[in-house]
């Protein structure tokens, strides 16, 4: 897997290909502010890790990006357009795909039906080229496990299979950018490994991913760049390699 990582160069795109541009994002849970003036961006073809301890504001950032928090403020430009006033479903329709940390599979629906819920029409980049579009058939090839259980209800799948299904369900929306919340959390090591392989494979297909992660090692395997959050503030940003080398930051905000 490391070998794959080293040969995989980030797909080079001009600065105009800035996919997501977040400026001065603030968010609250009830009366408590949990995000402060957050700035971050993701370019086309990048895998960016949002790192930090539990409660640092990673999941909150994702929810704010999706518009799933009642109180938030600040600018979110996606594909060059301001989306911060849109409802969650409208953001999803613009091509922002969200994979929640707690899976949230529709347990009474079969695998195929779960995918159907996520289906959106094919997308094209502004330059006219086709985006990474998926059909159920392609997804079943990409996730052979799911292909073998197309009619199984979500509730009768193991945790790892459910994890894959949530990703596949989001991919059915053909997102320009995938928000992947805590992919390695709460699953067996063997599944964590599969998740890492899957992210690398998606990256190889040209997908852009923003993921949140506590596990530096996991993030190091899959990402190009990282932002480190602490108590709702961005404390560090840089390439994954720089972060791995920066012991001070690691000790202060990640403490492995």
């Amino acid at each position: 897997m490391n070998a794959v990582h080293s040969t995989q160069q980030p797909v080079a795109h001009a600065a105009s290909e800035l996919l997501l541009e977040v400026s001065a994002l603030n968010a609250w849970y009830g009366a408590a502010q949990v995000l402060y003036e957050l700035n971050l961006n993701v370019r086309r073809g990048e895998v960016v890790a949002l790192m930090g301890r539990n409660g640092a504001g990673k999941s909150t950032t994702f929810k704010a990006l999706m518009g799933m928090l009642a109180r938030r403020q600040g600018g979110i430009r996606f594909m060059g357009q301001e989306i911060s006033t849109l409802a969650p479903f409208e953001r999803a329709r613009r091509g922002l795909g969200f994979v929640p940390e707690d899976r949230r599979v529709f347990t009474h629906l079969t695998v195929t039906e779960n995918l159907e819920v996520g289906r959106q029409s094919d997308r094209h980049w502004p330059d006219g080229s086709e985006a990474l579009n998926w059909t159920p058939q392609q997804l079943f090839e990409f996730f052979p496990n799911l292909g073998a259980m197309q009619d199984r209800p979500g509730g009768q799948m193991s945790g790892g299979e459910q994890q894959m299904l949530t990703v596949a369900r989001t991919l059915m929306g053909n997102p320009f950018l995938i928000l992947l919340d805590e992919p390695s959390e709460g699953v067996a090591p063997v599944i964590v490994e599969q998740m890492a392989q899957m992210i690398l494979a998606l990256k190889a297909k040209g997908a852009s991913i923003l993921l949140s992660e506590q596990n530096l090692h996991f993030a190091g395997l899959v990402s190009d760049r990282a932002y480190v959050l602490e108590k709702g503030l961005v404390r560090y940003e840089g390439s994954m390699a720089e972060l791995a080398a920066n012991e001070a930051v690691r000790k202060a905000y990640l403490t492995m």
């Binding site: 999706m66 799933m68 409802a87 969650p88 479903f89 999803a92 329709r93 969200f98 929640p100 949230r104 529709f106 347990t107 009474h108 629906l109 039906e113 779960n114 159907e116 819920v117 996520g118 289906r119 959106q120 369900r169 989001t170 929306g173």
Partner: peptide, 24 residues
């Protein structure tokens, strides 16, 4: 129908439905 699938999904988790691009 797709409508039916969405309805059944909504009985379980309508917030997730929104995040997947469905206008609840």
């Amino acid at each position: 129908t797709r409508w039916g699938v969405l309805v059944r999904a909504a009985t379980q988790d309508r917030e997730m439905l929104g995040a997947l691009g469905v206008n609840q």
